[in-house]
Computed example of a mutant assay.
Amino acid sequence: MSNTITATNFNFPNQTAKYTGKVREVYTINDDLLVMIATDRLSAFDVVMPKGIPFKGQILNQIATKMMKATEHLVPNWLIATPDPNVAIGHMCKPFKVEMVIRGYLSGHAAREYKAGKRRLCGVEMPEGMIENDKFPSPIITPATKAEMGEHDEDISREEILAKGIVSEEDYAQLENYTRLLFEEGTKIAKERGLILVDTKYEFGKTKDGKIVLIDEIHTPDSSRYFYADTYEELQKKQEPQKQLSKEFVRQWLINNDFQGKEGQTVPFMSDEYINSVSDRYIELYENITGETFKKADVSNILNRIEENVVSFLE
């Protein structure tokens, strides 16, 4: 899988810092601009898998930038340009140390907690008598702390965030407002594609002049879960698993192979055949979410391509 990006080590003009996240690598230019490169790394249960997924970075970057452009009339974001299929360039921001998770349905982590008997998630009450994938009466916000590499994100309540001074009350109110606006718009966009936006996470930062903006990815299959709308009611009635568009298929494969990122567990072997099937699924996700045919970028010398495009933009 030599045509994938699993790590980068660029030295761009006026580069002042580099940060490596689970999937993205971020280069700071002149302490003013950020060059964000979406790699082909695959992360699940907060663990980065040993092999890259062809075209995954391009898919995530292109969905995220399309969705930012589709929502910028509601919520300002950090984005300036996308000079390469894997690259987004934007304003340098100081990130808030929380992820704003919003859930319209009892799925994923929330469903696992509910099954374990919990009825409060991040200080928010969940109604009795729900079954997995039921719709909440109204979407709930369940924030998480932002984990460093190799650590797990952890649930946190609004009250704890304010009590610990992680975010000020005024800023937190704005984060909640922006989260609901984005989720509402994302739900509308998904509906036009015959999809249901089930849950997602948003990350925000502050620009140098103190403006709160949306950063990182938005409405991608890595940060969001989608169901197919046409089969939702019927599958719910039968209490059968929903047909979904998200990274959940990777999580389920890992769970079935005895891996959930817990201590002492090892990542199961991923054959080239499995890796290519994951790539195909990501392409399917892209086409369903955007309604456009995916065009594979030239990956014959992917790192050179990125470097040339970024340097050309910075000049």
Rank of each mutant, 00 (worst) to 15 (best):
residue 300 S to H: 08
residue 198 V to Y: 09
residue 29 I to E: 09
residue 7 A to N: 14
residue 48 V to T: 15
residue 17 A to D: 15
residue 283 I to F: 07
residue 24 R to G: 10
residue 310 V to Q: 02
residue 110 A to C: 14
residue 15 Q to R: 01
residue 241 P to N: 06
residue 300 S to A: 12
residue 103 R to I: 05
residue 314 L to T: 11
residue 313 F to N: 00
residue 106 L to V: 01
residue 210 G to W: 01
residue 237 K to V: 02
residue 227 F to S: 07
residue 109 H to R: 12
residue 64 A to L: 06
residue 275 I to K: 12
residue 85 P to Q: 03
residue 89 I to W: 00
residue 268 P to Q: 05
residue 306 I to Q: 02
residue 236 Q to R: 15
residue 181 L to S: 03
residue 249 F to Q: 11
residue 205 G to S: 04
residue 297 A to G: 09
residue 135 K to V: 12
residue 55 F to H: 15
residue 24 R to C: 03
residue 238 K to Y: 10
residue 155 D to I: 06
residue 185 E to Q: 02
residue 244 Q to V: 07
residue 151 E to C: 07
residue 112 R to D: 15
residue 131 I to D: 03
residue 113 E to D: 12
residue 175 L to S: 05
residue 138 S to T: 13
residue 137 P to W: 07
residue 209 D to R: 01
residue 47 V to G: 04
residue 126 M to S: 10
residue 197 L to T: 10
residue 302 I to C: 02
residue 74 L to R: 01
residue 226 Y to V: 03
residue 271 S to R: 08
residue 207 T to A: 06
residue 233 E to S: 14
residue 151 E to W: 07
residue 17 A to E: 15
residue 161 I to T: 03
residue 176 E to S: 14
residue 56 K to M: 02
residue 172 Y to P: 02
residue 4 T to V: 10
residue 83 P to L: 02
residue 2 S to I: 05
residue 19 Y to D: 05
residue 17 A to G: 15
residue 121 L to H: 14
residue 299 V to I: 13
residue 244 Q to N: 15
residue 311 V to A: 13
residue 307 E to K: 01
residue 110 A to M: 05
residue 211 K to N: 15
residue 183 F to V: 11
residue 237 K to T: 03
residue 237 K to Y: 06
residue 204 F to A: 00
residue 226 Y to T: 05
residue 71 T to K: 02
residue 231 T to F: 10
residue 167 V to A: 01
residue 36 M to N: 05
residue 251 R to A: 07
residue 256 N to C: 08
residue 74 L to F: 03
residue 38 A to H: 15
residue 294 F to W: 08
residue 247 K to S: 04
residue 38 A to D: 14
residue 213 V to R: 05
residue 237 K to D: 05
residue 303 L to P: 10
residue 223 S to G: 04
residue 179 T to G: 03
residue 239 Q to F: 09
residue 253 W to S: 05
residue 6 T to G: 08
residue 157 S to G: 07
residue 283 I to Q: 02
residue 290 T to M: 13
residue 126 M to Y: 06
residue 115 K to E: 13
residue 139 P to W: 05
residue 103 R to K: 10
residue 136 F to Q: 03
residue 16 T to W: 07
residue 110 A to L: 00
residue 141 I to C: 09
residue 212 I to A: 04
residue 271 S to H: 04
residue 272 D to V: 13
residue 237 K to H: 07
residue 23 V to A: 01
residue 207 T to R: 03
residue 286 Y to M: 06
residue 129 G to N: 15
residue 155 D to R: 07
residue 264 G to T: 14
residue 118 K to V: 11
residue 33 L to W: 00
residue 196 I to P: 08
residue 115 K to N: 09
residue 201 K to R: 00
residue 209 D to S: 08
residue 243 K to R: 13
residue 81 A to I: 02
residue 72 E to G: 07
residue 247 K to T: 04
residue 300 S to T: 12
residue 57 G to L: 08
residue 86 N to M: 09
residue 212 I to V: 10
residue 6 T to C: 06
residue 259 F to K: 12
residue 201 K to W: 11
residue 177 N to D: 12
residue 164 K to Y: 04
residue 47 V to S: 04
residue 274 Y to T: 08
residue 158 R to K: 14
residue 8 T to A: 10
residue 52 G to S: 11
residue 115 K to R: 12
residue 214 L to D: 13
